[in-house]
């Protein structure tokens, strides 16, 4: 009997010791472990939504959360969707960056994956991740051929399933984001922006949408027309809101709405669009001053303006009153 008591006592003492040492280690490392988790989240968000200063996290479920990325002035720069989905070997956890409207992917970061080293694992390489910048989901994965559209990426050779899994997770991320964004705005986010802008610069003016055209009226008199148009930029399509006079001959006002590259250099492009005010249509590329380091994006804005102009001209000719 004595021996059994001794056994129990010794074991209990050892377990008590072990337990207390572990509890101490656990408590003293917990903070650092939590910080590491936060840091990896922050780094990932910063790399997909550039210029993020702070973020707010909204947990959707245990596999998904939406991080609202804010700049130094508190404006929303975009969203990071942290989401887990199935890969080839196991779960893949991604951070997917979206522009404020949720239409365009700004970038992706792979947080966790257990794909085959050397094959599926190559989804963590920049060459693959960079492809997603500027794409507009739903994304299609091409095998062995170069992407042509803004919604296509090329699969990694020998790792088609891993590549497709990533694209599927990105598409799903957009779905989740849109579901959660639409609750807040209810309207096409570009339209909301245009309305907000018009109220600011031209208070008394009423805006009425007919088809793709916006009629700008003040006290029953038509002041001009507006249209939302897009042009193809460096890594993204750029959307603008173009206002023209009743004769559709020159730019009354121009608002650059959206585009990942615009988000990075917003002030520069705002200045640029101000300079285009009053210019005759269609715009001649040679006549405008270049935005340093962003020639392609600037060309995108110009082509968006000219596209918008063409549509306006045609629509008005067709006699829409």
């Amino acid at each position: 009997m004595r021996k059994e008591y001794r056994m129990i006592i010794v074991l209990t003492v050892i377990i008590a010791f072990a337990g207390s040492i572990l509890a101490y280690t656990y408590v003293s490392t917990q903070e650092a472990i939590q910080r590491n988790l936060d840091n990896s989240k922050k780094t990932a968000l910063l790399s997909v939504v550039k210029g993020t200063e702070s973020y707010e996290e909204q947990v959707i479920d245990d596999k998904t959360s939406i991080l609202t990325a804010k700049g130094s002035d508190g404006s929303v720069l975009g969203y990071g969707v942290m989401i887990t989905g199935g890969g080839f070997q196991g779960a893949i956890k991604l951070m997917v960056g979206f522009n404020p409207s949720g239409d365009t992917v700004l970038g992706i970061e792979v947080l966790e994956n257990v794909e085959t080293p050397g094959l599926g694992n190559r989804i963590v390489e920049d060459g693959f991740k960079k492809q997603f910048e500027g794409t507009t989901p739903p994304i299609e994965v091409l095998k062995g051929q170069k992407p042509e559209k803004k919604s296509q990426v090329q699969a990694i050779t020998g790792a088609t399933i891993s590549s497709k899994s990533v694209a599927a997770i990105v598409n799903n991320a957009q779905k989740v984001l849109k579901e959660n964004l639409s609750g807040e705005t209810g309207k096409d986010s570009l339209e909301v922006k245009v309305e907000g802008y018009l109220q600011k610069v031209m208070p008394g003016v009423r805006m009425e949408k007919r088809g793709s055209l916006y009629f700008l009226e003040e006290e029953g008199e038509i002041l001009g027309y507006g249209i939302i148009a897009r042009g193809l930029g460096y890594s993204d399509s750029v959307a603008v809101f173009l206002c023209v006079d009743t004769k559709v001959s020159r730019i009354e006002d121009l608002l650059v709405l959206d585009g990942s590259e615009v988000a990075v250099n917003r002030t520069k492009f705002e200045e640029f669009s101000q300079k285009l005010k009053g210019k005759a249509l269609p715009l001649n590329i040679k006549g405008v001053e270049v935005v340093t380091g962003a020639t392609v994006t600037q060309d995108a804005i110009i082509s968006a303006v000219n596209t918008g102009f063409e549509i306006l001209k045609k629509e008005i000719k067709n006699g829409i009153k």
């Binding site: 280690t25 490392t29 650092a32 472990i33 590491n36 990896s40």
Partner: peptide, 12 residues
Amino acid sequence: TIADLFLKAKFP
């Protein structure tokens, strides 16, 4: 467990 927690904290 100590080694595991240490690595998680210092070398994630």
